[in-house]
Nucleic acid binder design. Sequence first.
DNA 1: TTTAATACGACCAGAAAAGTCTGATTACTG
DNA 2: CAGTAATCAGACTTTTCTGGTCGTATTAAA
Lengths: 143, 143
Amino acid sequence: MFQLTKKIEYSLIALTYMGSKKKEDISTAKEIASLYQIPRELLAKVLQQLNRDGYIRSVQGPRGGYVLSRSPDEVNLDDIIRTIEGKRGFTECSGTGGADCVRSVNCSIRVPMEQLDRQMAAFLSSVTLEHVMRGEIPSCNIT
Amino acid sequence: MFQLTKKIEYSLIALTYMGSKKKEDISTAKEIASLYQIPRELLAKVLQQLNRDGYIRSVQGPRGGYVLSRSPDEVNLDDIIRTIEGKRGFTECSGTGGADCVRSVNCSIRVPMEQLDRQMAAFLSSVTLEHVMRGEIPSCNIT
DNA sequence: TTTAATACGACCAGAAAAGTCTGATTACTG
DNA sequence: CAGTAATCAGACTTTTCTGGTCGTATTAAA
């Protein structure tokens, strides 16, 4: 329904939480899950993905957990969406370049949809974790 | 997956097609469906919804069909999405104001998500059917 | 050695999206 | 007036995705 998934929401909640702690202060999945009423296992999977893609760093074993491994102003929404949901395309064809679309060549909306996709990506790229933490999302001025 | 639905795609294809015809030149669901390889019945439902909401006008009976009932520069993407998919919210909570969210009050991302939602709506509102037809989507300049 | 954490993948249920089908209504046309 | 070609409406099915759960392995501190 053209809506961010729970996984993205959970990612943002977890990342902002970790970002608000002092550096090298470890957060666990359990801690975040209970604090924000998020299913632990699901959050864990999300955190594992964020770890694999280098947004956070994991520490195993007891007293382990996660810490942010990038500065909040170096992580943007577009990156996070791509990490959690895989390749993002505003429309089905704008993601694949129309490779698997029966219309592809004579599709009347492919070109504008690709442009739309680029605009969306540009905007989402400009929104950093820092913006989310500060509660101040950049404005998008149309020209 | 944060992607426009087929229904929206079909709406845009149909609307741009109708918009490219001369005024009062009728298009049928069958015609558009076969031209763009869209399932006829599904397209029909989409067109019926667009008719109910006043974007197009239907003519029943043989030689019937649909015509655009608004100027292409008076129809924007945000409207179309709302018409076809119902209320839109970038995040679950940003749509309902957090009414049904367990986190609501102490959710760390509610405020920025609502801002994000407004920015998205503003941008999508600025994209008109005319832009889609011309293949020129407005740019969104971040500040 | 115990324990408390992450790591990973399989699995399931429910919801949503996409598509199909049936039948009714409308109104033009021969 | 009958036949036909279109919309209208809604129920239904199929498929895909999401959200959530579970079980087990691994790691490393205490």
